[in-house]
Amino acid sequence: MSPKSRLYTLVKAWKNKPFQEVRDACGDPWLGISSQALEEHQSWSKRQAISHEPIFNCKGEKLTGSLFRPLLNATDMQLLRLFMEGLDTIAYWYRSGRLIPGILPMPIHAIASSKYIDAMSELILNSRLPVGLVAVGIWSTPEIDISDACKEGLLRLRRLGVLLHHLNFTGNVDELRWIKEMQMEGVHIDMKQMREHVLASNVLSQLRESPYSATQIYASNIGLINDLENATSLIADHAYGGLMMSPVSRHQMLQINDSRIAKAIFSLHPHQHLNQNGDK
C-alpha cells in the first residue's frame, strides 16, 4: 500500500468515527460524563423536550437561530451532557438540510476551566459541524481572578470556529470593554429590562463602531408589542421571546416555515392602536 493510499484510509476512518466516541475524551466523573449519563442523554433526546427557543430577524421574516435553554440552569454535573445534546441537535438540523445556528450558554467558571474547555473542544471537533453554526454564550463578565483563564478559554473555542455571544448586556463599562476586547459576534439585550432602564445611544454606537462591525444585536425576552417596537428602535438584528414564539422541540424547529411565521405572528405590524401597557 502506498503512503498516499494509507493516508486516505486514515482520513476516511477519522471522518466516519461515530459521534459518541467523544465519551473517551471527557470521561472524568466530576465532569458529568459516564455510561449512566450517556444512557440518560439518549433517553432525554428521545423525549423531544421543548428546549429550543427560536430566534428570528427583527421583522420576523426569517428564522435565524436557536437558544438552547436547558444550559441556562444546568448544574456542573449536567453541563457537558447538555452541551453534547445541543451540538447533537444542531447536527440533526444540519443533516436534515437546515442551517440553524445554535447558541449554547455556558457559565463563566466552566469557560475558565481548562478541563471543561478540553472536553468542549473534543465535542465540537467530533461534531464536524460547519463554522458559524455553533455559538457559545456567556451570561456575565468574569471576575478579575479568572479573567485571563476565561479569555484563554474563549480564544480556544474561537480557534475552532465557535462564535461568541454575551447573553445579558446591561450597558455598563466593564461589559462594553469585555465585548470589544473579545470581538464578540452577538450581544443580547433584555427588552423587559429596557422598559425600566433605557440604554444610552452612545453605548449602542460603541457596540457597532462601523457599518462593517461583526457584532449583531439580539433583542431577548420579547413579551409585549412595545418590546418589539423598542427592538426595532435599537435597530436590533435578531429578536426572540414569548411574543415571537415559545420554545419548541428540535423536530418542531425543522417545521418552522419562515414565510408562514411572518404572516401568522407578525401580522401585528404596523402597531397603530396601543394602550399604555403596549398591548393591542
Rank of each mutant, 00 (worst) to 15 (best):
H251M: 11
T89H: 03
K280S: 11
L234Q: 04
H197I: 09
G27I: 07
D145W: 01
T215A: 03
V136S: 06
Y92N: 09
S127L: 05
A149I: 01
A91P: 13
G97K: 01
P130R: 05
R260T: 06
V187M: 07
I225D: 01
S201K: 13
A110G: 09
N168E: 10
E229A: 08
P70V: 14
L82R: 15
Y92V: 11
E152S: 10
S267K: 15
P29G: 07
L125I: 07
A135N: 03
K4A: 06
Y8Q: 05
L71F: 05
R128C: 14
D28N: 07
L82N: 06
E229Y: 11
I117N: 04
I138C: 04
H273A: 10
L67S: 00
R69V: 04
A49T: 15
I222K: 00
D190P: 07
I124T: 11
M245G: 12
F68G: 01
L31I: 05
F68M: 05
R69Q: 09
S5Q: 15
N257H: 11
S259F: 15
S140W: 02
A214R: 08
G153W: 13
R69P: 03
Q78T: 04
L63H: 13
P211N: 08
Q206T: 15
S113C: 01
M245Y: 04
E53T: 09
E196F: 11
I179W: 00
K59P: 13
N277G: 06
T215C: 13
Q183P: 03
T89C: 05
T141C: 15
N277S: 15
P270E: 00
P211I: 02
P29F: 06
R208M: 05
Y94L: 06
Q42I: 07
F68K: 08
P70W: 03
L167R: 09
N221Y: 03
Y240A: 11
R95G: 07
L72K: 02
I235Q: 09
G137E: 11
R177T: 05
S220H: 03
S114Q: 10
S34R: 08
I124G: 01
A119S: 08
L82W: 03
S220G: 01
R177P: 14
Q78H: 09
P142Y: 07
V203N: 02
R195Q: 04
H251R: 04
Q216V: 06
Q48C: 11
A231L: 12
K4E: 10
K151R: 08
Q20S: 15
I146Q: 00
S246Q: 15
F56T: 00
D76F: 11
A135C: 04
G242Y: 08
I235G: 12
